[in-house]
Nucleic acid binder design. Structure first.
Lengths: 144, 144
DNA sequence: TGTATCTTGTTATTGTATTACACTTGAGGG
DNA sequence: CCCTCAAGTGTAATACAATAACAAGATACA
């Protein structure tokens, strides 16, 4: 649990973005986004699932995967393909594909959005989507 | 089944590379590499497994995963993280991380190796490994 | 011969994600 | 008001991806 003010702030932004797009941030979707925002790094779907159902009515896998699909498709979250995990998007509605820098020690993710056109693309290749995930040590973890 | 001359040619190169590195391209590893080279695009581990055991002695998952780990660690193959699939490396021993261009229509993979230093890396981030996978339409598939 | 290392076999299990179908809810139109 | 349609959710079962743990053969070499 990090700063709660940040958390609610981002949730409010998410609400606004959904309103603008005409899609609905339902309680389940909101809860999942909240869990992602609250985490220190990428979170696995089944970990979300476990957090989602401490109570009686046990959530099932499709519930969390549906919520994640929604969040990813609206740009509120990203899937980290090389980790099979998910992370909240901390930018608004940026153009360009997400570029993730993931610390292998502390797990923190820093996010950028690349507008850059690729050089050295194969002749005639028409780009639609990119997965870019960089691993290394973040500035904080270099001290150790 | 594509041109067999190409295939054996690449296998021979793989042999040579393993010899240079002092690692052994055992029959199983060689067979898996052959299947990867022979495929039109990335192949899933369980598809390899199925191809590996048409006979009696049924190969088990660890067999193919171990072979794949070996091929990836020696640079003879790459894992396509966003597909959970594997593809043969068509370059020799290039420096720099692999950059994959994957056609969403025909599944073909074109591969480059990036030596480029990243601009706009977060302050003090020390890079160790990158996953870069681009999706789109290859030149051939644009005609349609 | 002994032993150390690498490779493979085998069984079981864990982890990740989807299919298929039933049910509810809310909005808009007759 | 009732109908219907679409979006969202519940639920059970299953498919797909990867690993753990331990046994056993193979090779090299002191």
């Amino acid at each position: 649990m990090t700063l709660h003010s940040d958390l609610t702030h981002s949730l409010a932004e998410a609400e606004a973005l959904c309103a603008r797009k005409g899609v609905s941030l339902t309680p389940i979707r909101k809860r999942v986004l909240e869990l992602l925002l609250d985490a220190d790094g990428p979170v696995k779907a089944y970990d979300l699932l476990a957090q989602l159902k401490p109570g009686a009515g046990a959530a099932q896998p499709p519930t969390v995967y549906r919520a994640l699909d929604f969040l990813v498709s609206t740009g509120l979250a990203h899937k980290v393909e090389s980790l099979n995990a998910y992370t909240a998007c901390i930018h608004g509605e940026e153009a360009g594909g997400p570029v993730l820098f993931i610390c292998e020690k502390c797990g923190a993710v820093q996010e950028q959005h690349a507008h850059a056109k690729l050089k050295d693309m194969p002749e005639g290749f028409q780009l639609t989507r990119s997965v870019v995930e960089h691993y290394g040590l973040c500035a904080n973890c270099q001290a150790a």
